[in-house]
Write a protein that binds this DNA or RNA. Structure first.
Lengths: 149, 149
DNA sequence: TATATTCTCTACTAAGTTGATCGACAATAT
DNA sequence: ATATTGTCGATCAACTTAGTAGAGAATATA
C-alpha cells in the first residue's frame, strides 16, 4: 500500500469535511486552502468521492460539499482503495482488485503476502474518520496550535 | 508496499539461488527458465543484487551466480527495499527513504502510517529466505508437484 | 430577470516509472 | 582459439502521476 498525493489529498478532504460537519456545507476553496491542495485537482478528487457516495454537494452561492454519511461510518481503507487501488502488496492476494498469477497454487511467497495484506487491512479498515477527528481534537487540546480549523 | 515485477523477480531469483545453494553456481539461463523471468531483465536485476552484496558471480564457461551469504541472513524486507524502495505506506514515516512532509509534527494520520509501517516490517524483516526454502520443501513433500527444481 | 458564485465535466500535458529489449564487450574454461 | 557466460549502457513503448485549463451548468440573491 502506497499513499499517493491523490490518496493523501482525499483523506485530508474527507477529514476536513468531518471536522466541519456541523457547518453544514464547506466550499472547495476553504478545503483547498486549509489542506494546501491545488484547487482544480481537489475538485476532481471530490467528484470521485461524490461518485462513490462519500460526499454530497450543491452548486451556486451558499453551495459546497458535505459528508454523505457519518464519519464513524467511513474508514481510511475505503478512501485509500477508492483513490489508490488495492491495499494488498500484490494483486494475487487482493480482495478488492485480484489479479491472477501464474505461480498459483504453489507460490511459496503467497502466505507472506496474505499476512501483510491482513496486517494492513486490520489497521486501515478499523480506523474511521471519527477516530482521526478525535486525534485532531486531542492534539488541539494538548498544544496551543489549532490544526485544521 | 507494492511488490513490482522487478521486486517479484528479484525475490524469485534469490530464492532460486538459495534452493540451489549446494550446486555451487547457477547460470542465469536456468534461473530465467525456472522462474519464468525475461533473461535480459533478470540480468539487470542480478547486477543490482550483486552490487548490494547479496550475490556473487563468475563469467565464462562454468560461470554463474551464487548467494554471497546464507539464506538465513537475507530477509524479504531487504530485497524488497532494494528493488522497490521503502516498505512504508508514505515517505514521512519511512526509515529507509524518509521524505519530509509539511504537516509535521501535527499530521493526524501519521500515527496510523507508523502502525502500518511497523506491521509490514514486522513481517518482511523477520522472514528470511531460509523460511521460504522450508515452505518450498514442505510443499514439495506434501504434493507430488516439485516446484522450483 | 440579471448576475455572481460555486460545482461539474472533459481535455490536455509534462515528467517520471515500469518492464522490458538490444547489442557490444569483457572474462574465463577447455 | 573459441565458445560460453556475465557486464554494462542505451533505448523504448506504455502507463501513471500530478497536475492545469477552460467552458458549462446550477443556484442564491439583488
Amino acid at each position: 500500500m502506497k499513499i499517493s498525493f491523490k490518496g493523501d489529498y482525499a483523506l485530508k478532504a474527507v477529514l476536513d469535511l468531518a471536522l466541519h460537519y456541523d457547518e453544514d456545507k464547506v466550499r472547495i476553496n476553504e478545503i483547498a486552502k486549509r489542506q494546501d491542495i491545488p484547487l482544480k485537482y481537489l475538485s476532481q478528487i471530490l467528484l470521485v468521492l461524490k461518485g462513490a457516495g462519500y460526499v454530497q454537494s450543491r452548486r451556486g452561492p451558499q453551495g459546497g460539499y458535505w459528508l454523505a454519511k457519518s464519519s464513524r461510518k467511513i474508514t481510511l481503507g475505503e478512501i485509500i482503495r477508492l483513490m489508490d487501488g488495492p491495499t494488498s502488496p500484490i494483486g494475487c492476494v487482493s480482495r478488492s482488485g485480484y489479479s491472477k498469477c501464474n505461480d498459483e497454487p504453489f507460490c511459496p511467497f503467497v502466505g507472506i503476502w496474505v499476512k501483510v495484506r491482513d496486517a494492513i487491512n486490520e489497521i486501515v479498515d478499523h480506523t474511521t474518520f471519527e477516530d482521526i477527528c478525535e486525534i485532531v481534537k486531542s492534539q488541539n487540546r494538548e498544544s496551543n496550535f489549532t490544526y485544521y480549523i
